[in-house]
């Protein structure tokens, strides 16, 4: 059985200045099976979009190989393109002068969709995404959310075998993002030959949606497994969150305490406070942490123990938070 997507030592570099190169992807190996929703998680600049651009035949790899449905994207792009479609978050594609229906129809024609089939599918999707009342609205009059719904319909309407979604819920409000995620799951469940490759930097989205997740940082694949297995890889020990006031500048407070790992700061709801999250292999050490906090003049305004999530995993693997420096 062919894999839906396979990359073999996939590498892409860019010339950025005279004599300088930037490695956007560094020997990435992925194997994505048909029927999977596969997530690629990483911060901005990690190489996620570069990977997608290579897979959808828009960019040549510098070295290595990328196969989509068994076809080499460099050698046989014409065999890959009828099988795929893609949607990017925040994209402004289409023409403002055309209506929603006309825009979706136009893109469907580039895939050769017969008129009657296109019309039927567009009607169904417009209803499914509650955009039917705006079918005749010109695109330049749409809100950002509506426009992104239209883009998402554009991606599904050609019934691709493999759908590439590059941060599809970027900038969408919570309800629309949830609606999109729900539909992606339904769409995959309808046909086990369909595959979705989704890039995101929303941890919750990746956990909710993906069968497997690859974590990319600095162009390198640093982890790849199911969300549950990735969480298990965090190992023994509980995850704790302390709400401290005044706000600590960094995590040095717990750095020297044995058994503490993966410490990072999070904004806290309470003004003037900051959440310090860390993994602790031995719960007995909590007393030491409370004592150190008091010694340094911090008040502990809250304390909780919780299940690890992908954010914790990301910190453990990469050494910083996913949204740091954004």
């Amino acid at each position: 059985m062919n894999l839906a997507v396979e990359t073999i030592d996939l590498t892409r570099t860019y010339k950025v200045k005279r004599g300088e190169t930037l490695t956007a992807l560094d020997r990435v190996n992925l194997q994505i099976r048909p029927g999977e929703v596969f997530g690629v998680l990483g911060p901005n600049g990690a190489g996620k979009t570069t990977a997608i651009k290579i897979l959808v035949t828009l960019l040549y790899p510098s070295s290595g190989q990328a196969l989509v449905a068994g076809h080499d994207v460099v050698e046989h792009p014409e065999k890959v393109r009828p099988l795929i479609n893609m949607v990017s978050g925040g994209e402004t594609s289409g023409y403002g002068i055309l209506t929603v229906r006309e825009n979706i129809w136009m893109f469907s024609q580039f895939y050769g969709l017969p008129g009657a089939v296109a019309k039927k599918r567009i009607d169904e999707y417009l209803v499914r995404f509650s955009l039917d009342k705006n079918a005749k609205t010109k695109v330049h009059n749409l809100s950002t959310g509506m426009r992104q719904k239209m883009n998402i319909i554009r991606g599904f309407v050609t019934d691709p075998q493999i759908l590439f979604l590059d941060e599809p819920t970027l900038g969408l409000d919570v309800h629309i993002a949830r609606e999109v995620r729900r539909y992606i799951r339904e769409w995959i469940a309808e046909n086990n030959r369909r595959t979705v490759l989704l890039t995101t930097h929303y941890m919750a989205e990746a956990e909710e949606l993906c069968d497997r997740i690859a974590i990319i940082d600095g162009g390198r694949l640093v982890a790849c497994d199911t969300p549950a297995a990735l969480r298990r890889s965090l190992g023994e020990g509980g995850l704790f969150t302390l709400i401290l006031s005044p706000e600590p500048r960094d995590t040095s407070l717990v750095a020297n305490i044995p058994g503490v790992s993966g410490a990072y700061l999070l904004p806290a709801d309470e003004p003037g406070s900051m959440a310090l999250r860390f993994q602790l292999s031995d719960d007995q050490r909590l007393q030491d942490i409370f004592a150190v906090a008091a010694e340094h003049g911090y008040r502990i305004k809250g304390f909780s123990k919780h299940e690890p999530d992908l954010e914790d995993l990301f910190v453990k693997i990469v050494g910083r938070r996913l949204h740091e420096n954004e």
Binding site: V56, L58, R81, I84, M86, T92, S93, F107, F110, Y111
Partner: peptide, 13 residues
């Protein structure tokens, strides 16, 4: 600029 070119070039036409 609008992203249309990506969609055109990645389509079968």
């Amino acid at each position: 600029e609008t992203g249309n070119l990506d969609l055109y070039m990645a389509s079968p036409m």
